[in-house]
């Protein structure tokens, strides 16, 4: 298990991490979410000793991380970090070797990954000759080639087309399935929702929400109602209800935030009394809702 405890880092006047604490479990995927500049990248870099922390500790399996263990991790930085003029296959092999694979194992793994991610025909191309998406694939291969125990992927899906996202998503999911702890950051919340078991939301250097996605959703103090009610009074059927907040309204369609302890049957009856209900959905928050709640301070 990876544990980050009480991380603090300040760059001049800018606080990047402020008592940041979260953990990632083997065999599970943790989505690290947060607005731009919230400290996600700093937290991820700290795992590799790339940040000198002002305070706090990063532990793996309960201990401070030793170089030998760190070599069993895989890292995909947000910006490209590859030798631009090195050939794709050589590059993947080289990183495999650095992470402790034998020459044979490294070239076998490189060939498998090139095949898997559809880059076999570009194996002898220089990285700088590849498109953005293909460079991204190479960067991912470099993180995966040695079957890492822990994968830290900083925005692995940014700039990819939907097909690329789906392919990489599958690959990352497999890594968790084989037992790796996977941490990845993303702004694509629907994607995280589909992939991750766990989430942690960072805001201004602090974790403002953390846990298994299901648990976090049911623990939320809010529920969401998406409904459309036809009739003269239909559009305003929710007016006057206590604790209800109107999020969006379009024609007769509304989206509401309501306290978690509201009885959905009661709400539905109120809607039916106001007109004919076209549809009515009562649900726990989506990840996007949770994110907005957490970052705007609703959850506190």
């Amino acid at each position: 298990m990876l544990e980050l405890t009480g991380l603090r880092k300040q760059y001049g006047d800018v606080v990047a991490l402020d008592e940041c604490t979260f953990r990632a479990q083997p065999g599970r995927m943790l989505g690290l979410l947060g607005p731009n500049g919230s400290g996600k990248t700093t937290a991820m870099r700290s795992v590799f000793g790339l940040v000198h922390l002002d305070d706090g500790a990063v532990r793996w399996r309960g201990e401070a991380i030793q170089p030998e263990e760190r070599a069993r991790f895989g890292y995909m930085p947000e910006q490209r970090g590859l030798y631009p003029r090195m050939r794709v296959r050589d590059q993947v092999i080289y990183f495999g070797r650095l992470h402790g694979l034998s020459a044979d194992a490294a070239s076998r793994a490189a060939d498998e990954w090139l095949e898997r991610l559809g880059l076999s025909d570009r194996a002898e191309s220089r990285v700088e000759e590849l498109s953005h998406g293909n460079q991204q694939r190479v960067q991912l291969m470099v993180a995966l080639v040695h079957e890492a125990d822990l994968l830290i992927l900083d925005e692995p899906f940014s700039g990819l087309d939907p097909i690329g996202v789906a392919a990489l998503g599958d690959v990352v999911r497999e890594q968790a399935a084989r037992g790796a702890a996977v941490v990845f950051s993303s702004h694509q919340l629907d994607l995280v929702e589909g992939l991750c078991e766990d989430i942690a939301v960072v805001n201004q250097g602090r974790i403002v929400l953390e846990g298994a996605l299901d648990a976090v959703r049911s623990a939320s103090p809010s529920r969401y109602v998406h409904a459309s009610v036809d009739g003269d009074a239909g559009a305003a059927w929710h007016a006057g209800l206590e604790g209800v907040e109107l999020l969006t309204a379009r024609n007769s369609e509304v989206r509401l935030r309501v306290p978690a302890d509201v009885d959905p049957a009661e709400l539905l009856r109120t809607a039916q009394a106001a007109g004919s209900v076209v549809f009515f959905r009562f649900e726990p928050p989506s990840l996007s809702d949770l994110f907005m709640e957490a970052v705007s301070g609703v959850a506190e």
Binding site: R45, F48, G49, L50, P67, R70, A71, F73, G74, Y75, P77, Q79, R80, G81, L82, Y83, P84, F95, L98, H99, G100, V142, A143
Partner: peptide
């Protein structure tokens, strides 16, 4: 300089000192 400016050094530091 190439290793530093291409940021490959960040990835290298995962495996090397």
């Amino acid at each position: 300089v190439e290793e530093k400016t291409s940021r490959v050094v960040e990835v290298l530091m995962g495996a090397l000192r």
